[in-house]
Design a protein around this nucleic acid. Structure first.
Length: 496
RNA sequence: GGUCGCGUGGCCGAGUGGCUAGGCAGAGGUCUGCAAAACCUUGUACACCAGUUCGAAUCUGGUCGCGACCUCCA
């Protein structure tokens, strides 16, 4: 694959689909806002990071050299009452703050592995960049866009907007409306010049657990600052792609842009991508209001929201059947549908590997090649995984028809077959990051041996028209989730 | 209240100014000892009301409903 294909992506900044043109030909810098590690990840995080993983994989597939930075937020994220999320986690679990961070970072990584996502190139932590954050606060002060009050430092949104005219550009906010809003119950509201101003350095209360020395106070950095700092450090003042969940658009990303422009006088990213929310029961899946199911509950089926467990790859496949920019409603029925479709897809990979074309014939070549071409065409259209998957199923039908003899394999040239056998599994495994995690027949030598024997005995019974024995074997195996299928070219079996 | 988005057939979910999305489920058929799987065919659709247009589910306006953000959230 080459980087010559035109990729179009929807840019939140322009609210349009734009042709992707990297700053440096052949290279992509991508920053994605990672999780705050104060508790276990939930499915919404998984959807977001899976979506960006697909983009990362596809950029690699196109031949780009990608530096993918995804941070870990381990400080500075305030709750309603002003308490740091990590500190609260530490207090509740009776752990050191860094123990909390390590614990949930580990479980986050584990879950990302379970969903078969690639690791980012760099995974910086906010607390490892306190010095840089202090430097950026100073830069913003020096440029006149921040002011110090009682040891805290606030970003001056009004002055910034008057001079730069860009506050609100990303999220579509109108600053005058923000100004009129009062949030009297917010901490330190009284210190700000203006309600829309936000803290970039916070003076810590004496009992605050995570705090550092700074020119202004012993305190901690504002939440939005870490991303501004770490993206700049690892990707430069302006880089290609910045991503995150829709719910971060405002205030997080808007403020991030303001900080970068305020410090460096240039916009941080050329393309802003936002993934949409995962819903359950038609509402945003959210830990804070209890409308949630954990990944583990989904895998085991131990939840009132599902009738059974679903494997991680089925869940991932379910997610990829919708576009990243659309909301997705998680329902048991939809998961069941995805599970069946997913099995069919995985079966087709196996079937394809058994096909061989030796002829020169070409009646089917164009159809097959066109279908394969569609995979890239759809991915280049703003990473349209649902359409790409639809094309995959077009190919599945072809594969099965060839196997069953409904399509004549002599009409497929060896060259086309080779391309199909290479690109079909490769797209599923390398681009979509799907692996076969439910059909395990074939990777256990002992079971394979036993099954060979059992099916041979059954075949003997069938040859003698001893249907009772044959059916007894089949029914007995079914009780152990082994499904026997009698095909034209012999009997196969799969684990359910 | 402000801003934005959405409303597609039984379910999930794409897309487009005129041509089948796809998956699952339903119906009929082929295959099979039967079954499963697979394949073929097939029905049900674009919230409502106007307007623009030769033509709109797709564009515009209004109505209703839903959601997100505005406050920690992917």
């Amino acid at each position: 694959m080459s980087a010559t294909k035109d990729l179009f992506i929807y840019n939140t900044l322009s609210k349009k689909k734009e042709k992707f043109e990297p700053i440096t030909e052949g290279f992509v810098g991508m920053y994605v806002c990672g999780p705050t590690v104060y508790s276990d990840v939930h499915l919404g995080n998984v959807r977001t990071f899976t979506s960006f993983d697909i983009m990362y994989r596809y950029l690699l597939h196109l031949g780009y050299k990608v530096r993918y930075v995804r941070n870990i937020t381990d400080v500075g994220h305030l709750l309603d009452d002003g308490e740091d999320r990590i500190s609260r986690g530490a207090r509740l679990d009776q752990l050191e703050p860094m123990e909390v961070v390590q614990k949930y970072t580990n479980s986050f990584h584990q879950m990302m592995d379970i969903f078969n996502t690639k690791k980012p190139s760099i995974e910086p932590r906010a607390t490892q960049h306190i010095i840089e954050q202090i430097e950026m606060v100073q830069q913003i002060i020096d440029n006149g866009y921040a002011y110090e009050r009682n040891g805290s430092v606030y970003f001056d949104t009004q002055k910034f907007h008057q001079e730069k005219k860009c506050y609100g550009k990303l999220s579509g906010r109108v600053i005058d409306e923000l100004l009129s809003e009062t949030r009297g119950d917010l901490k330190n509201q009284g210190e700000k010049n203006c309600p829309s101003d936000f803290a970039i350095w916070m003076k810590a209360a004496p009992d605050h657990l995570m705090k550092w020395n700074s020119p202004w106070s012993v305190g901690f950095p504002g939440w939005h600052l870490e991303c501004s700092v770490m993206s700049t450090k690892y990707l430069g003042e302006t880089f290609d792609i910045h991503g995150g969940g829709n719910d971060l658009k405002f205030p997080h990303h808007e403020n991030e842009v303001a900080q970068n422009v305020g410090a460096c006088n240039c916009e941080p990213a050329n393309y802003w991508l936002h993934t949409n929310m995962l819903l359950m029961n038609g509402k945003k899946m959210s830990k804070s209001d209890g409308n949630t199911i954990t990944p583990d509950e989904l895998f085991t089926g131990d939840s009132p929201h599902v009738s059974k467990g679903y494997s991680p790859m089925v869940v991932k496949f379910f997610m990829l059947q919708s576009h990243y920019s659309s909301t997705l409603d998680l329902t048991d029925e939809a998961l069941q549908a995805s599970e069946k479709g997913y099995k069919r897809l995985m079966e087709a990979i196996k079937t394809l590997s058994t096909l061989s074309a030796k002829s020169e014939g070409n009646a089917l070549d164009k159809e097959i090649n066109d279908a394969v071409d569609m995979l890239d065409k759809h991915m280049c259209d703003d990473f349209n995984t649902p359409r790409a998957i639809a094309s995959l199923f077009d190919i599945v039908s072809k594969i099965n028809s060839l196997k069953e003899g409904h399509l004549d394999i002599r009409q497929v040239s060896a060259e086309t077959m080779e391309r199909l056998q290479k690109s079909f599994p490769s797209f599923i495994h390398d681009v979509l990051g799907l692996e076969d995690d439910i059909l395990s027949g074939g990777n256990n030598d002992k079971l394979d041996g036993v099954m060979d024997l059992v099916l041979q005995l059954r075949q003997d019974a069938r040859a003698n028209k001893n249907w009772d024995i044959a059916d007894k074997i089949r029914d007995g195996l079914a009780k152990h989730q082994i499904v026997v299928k009698d095909g034209k070219e012999g009997t196969t079996w799969t684990l359910n």
